[in-house]
């Protein structure tokens, strides 16, 4: 049986082409697949559409990807941060397109893509400027907006443990968008802290079943001193 575990991050992001739509997990830096993003920058793909909760901090991660001018459009809920100067400058210069999506609608549009749902109605955003251009409908006396799924070519996520089948567990609030993004891309790539053998993950505790995961890469060594890795 072939393993989904690849040798390094370069192999993990292999085949990501210019023009791709990529989901990137993480909330702030928790759950952000930093090494995969660095590899994506090195890979050279451009004209990307990125879907992530934030638009990067400082000059690392998504901010570095933006700074390298690889991103045409970003969908996110909270681009403005105290240190989002890379995004801010590109946005003000009109050099990046922004689709601002309420956080729950962002998660649900990704979930809808993964679950084969054509579109859904939600109250979030009704009667606001984010409703512009959207179909609306009154359901049970309350205004709703029609929202469409966000399908992606790739998802880059960070998990804690993986097995060769691609089953994943996460760590604390680094889980955030990972499980839902894993379902919504044609090719989901997970960077993990440790790979364990088949059968070593408790089936009751697997959060993302391997059916949703195409490639796994182990990126250990960035942990701060004093951290203890959770056991399988």
């Amino acid at each position: 049986m072939s393993s989904k575990v690849v040798a390094d991050v370069e192999a993990a992001v292999g085949g990501i082409e210019s023009g791709s739509t990529i989901l990137i997990g993480g909330f702030g830096s928790a759950g952000l697949p930093s090494e995969l993003i660095d590899a994506l920058i090195a890979n050279g793909a451009s004209d990307l559409t990125i879907v992530s909760n934030n638009a990067g901090n400082g000059e690392q991660g998504i901010a570095a990807l933006l700074q390298a001018r690889r991103v045409r459009k970003i969908l996110c809920s909270f681009p403005r941060q105290s240190d989002s100067f890379v995004f801010d400058a590109l946005y003000r210069a009109g050099e990046i397109e922004l689709e601002l999506v309420p956080q729950g609608t962002l998660a649900e549009r990704i979930r809808a893509a993964g679950a084969g749902i054509g579109a859904f109605y939600t109250q979030t955003g009704f009667g606001t400027r984010l409703a512009q251009g959207k179909e609306s409908r009154i359901i049970d006396g309350k205004g709703h907006l029609l929202e469409h799924p966000i399908h992606a070519d790739f998802a880059l996520i960070r998990a804690e443990l993986a097995d060769p089948l691609g089953n994943l567990t996460y760590r604390k609030s680094a889980r955030n968008f990972g499980p839902v993004m894993a379902t919504a891309a044609r090719c989901t790539i997970a960077q993990v802290s440790r790979v364990v053998g088949i059968g070593e993950l408790d089936p009751e505790a697997i959060v993302t079943p391997g059916i949703f995961v195409r490639r796994v890469v182990c990126t250990r060594g960035r942990r701060q001193a004093g951290w203890t890795e959770s056991a399988a």
């Binding site: 809920s77 909270f78 989002s84 922004l98 601002l100 956080q103 729950g104 109250q123 606001t128 984010l130």
Partner: peptide, 21 residues
Amino acid sequence: WHAGAEDAIPAVGGAMDLAIG
């Protein structure tokens, strides 16, 4: 979520979801 300035960097987060939910 937005103080009105047209050149502001917008950010909505989960506010709209919490407000209706």
